Computed example of a mutant assay.
Amino acid sequence: MTLYSKIIGTGSYLPPKRVTNQELADQLAATGIETSDEWIVSRSGISARHYAEADVKSSDLAVAAARNALQMAGKSASDIDLIILATSTPDFFGGFPSTACVVQRKLGMANGSAAFDVQAVCSGFVYAVSIADSFIKSGAHKNVLVIGTEVFSRILDFKDRTTCVLFGDGAGAVVLSASNEPGILATKLHADGSYSDILCVPGSVAGGAVEGSAFLYMDGPAVFKLAVSVLEKVANETLAMAGMEASQIDWLVPHQANIRIMTSTAKKLGLPVEKMVVTVDQQGNTSAASIPMALDKAMRDGRIKPGQNVMMEGVGGGFTWGAVLARM
């Protein structure tokens, strides 16, 4: 009997503080940085984003999203035998200890289950799902909690209007369980370290101090060009692995980075934009959290239905990219 992994629950969480483009423009104007709602929307499709309060960490957002996913799945935290958490904004320097272990503690899990973080920036959730799928298919684990969580507001340079307007905070989660029915149909992951400098936080910690910059840096045009190129290719690679055509995709759930990148990918795949889940307009780019948050929204509002095929794909710093094709 073939063993599969299947998504049986989704969850998400946005911190309450919502910041509109106008509010952000007013905040930046006070420091001499000019921008506007029109400028931000025209370049990204973003109208608002959410920021976590100063005392809220990535693990706090992750726990809230995880509880929602567990509730939908009909599972308790004690049923989970592996946590894989994707983040670029861990609770501690160097991700030590891992945010996954902090989440395990905050969920009250005392069953000794494994827990670790994945760092693939905006592709992190796709990477994490692919790893979880392999663990389940191997028989090593039965119920895996996969989380993407970010507090990107902590690493934004609010003197750089080209980046600070794009990102937000939030968390999304899924529960993958062993199943006799096909769930994750195919996954494909890529990376090219020769592009590591076009999207990064180019600082390091030495002697208790930051050397270099602790703020996010992005070469926008270079990222845009590469993202548009690789997302179509990896989607088609994943479809080929599953023996399927793009016409069989019911929903495209892309990383919510930029509406122009997203619509370009849909167009290249021959998919109408009506089949694409969009949250970037109200949530901004939440990096590793963006795909599971968008998936959860479409699951809970009834757009995504059982048995439908969902293509999830992401691209991020590293440079990393990948896709997951799932039957819900």
Rank of each mutant, 00 (worst) to 15 (best):
E245D: 15
V41M: 06
A128D: 12
S204E: 14
T320H: 08
T286C: 13
Q282N: 12
A25L: 04
L14K: 15
E211R: 15
F135Y: 15
W321Y: 12
D55P: 07
S194H: 02
L252N: 06
G170P: 13
A114E: 13
V63C: 06
V174F: 03
V129H: 08
D26F: 02
D91M: 11
C122N: 04
D79S: 14
V126E: 05
H255E: 07
S47V: 04
F96M: 14
M311C: 08
V280C: 12
I147G: 12
R43D: 08
L295D: 05
Y4F: 15
D250N: 15
I80C: 05
G95K: 10
F152H: 06
G168R: 08
L70K: 10
M72F: 03
A64G: 05
H190W: 06
A115W: 11
T187K: 10
D26K: 04
A64F: 05
G302Q: 13
V278C: 12
G284T: 11
C200A: 13
A29T: 03
D81W: 12
T162L: 01
R154S: 04
R327S: 05
T31I: 08
G183M: 12
V234H: 02
T263M: 12
D37Y: 06
L14G: 07
V63Y: 05
G94W: 11
I83C: 10
P15R: 13
S5A: 15
K106Q: 15
L24P: 01
V315I: 15
D55I: 08
D157T: 03
G207H: 11
G32H: 00
K57I: 07
E34F: 07
P97V: 11
S179G: 14
A132M: 13
R327M: 15
A294D: 05
S36E: 05
A209L: 12
V103M: 09
V234T: 14
M299K: 09
T149W: 04
V174R: 03
T35N: 07
T187M: 03
A227H: 01
D37Q: 09
K233C: 03
M312N: 01
I40M: 05
Q308R: 09
T162Q: 13
I184C: 04
D81A: 07
L325R: 11
V253C: 14
P202Y: 01
I198K: 01
I155T: 12
N258I: 05
I131T: 10
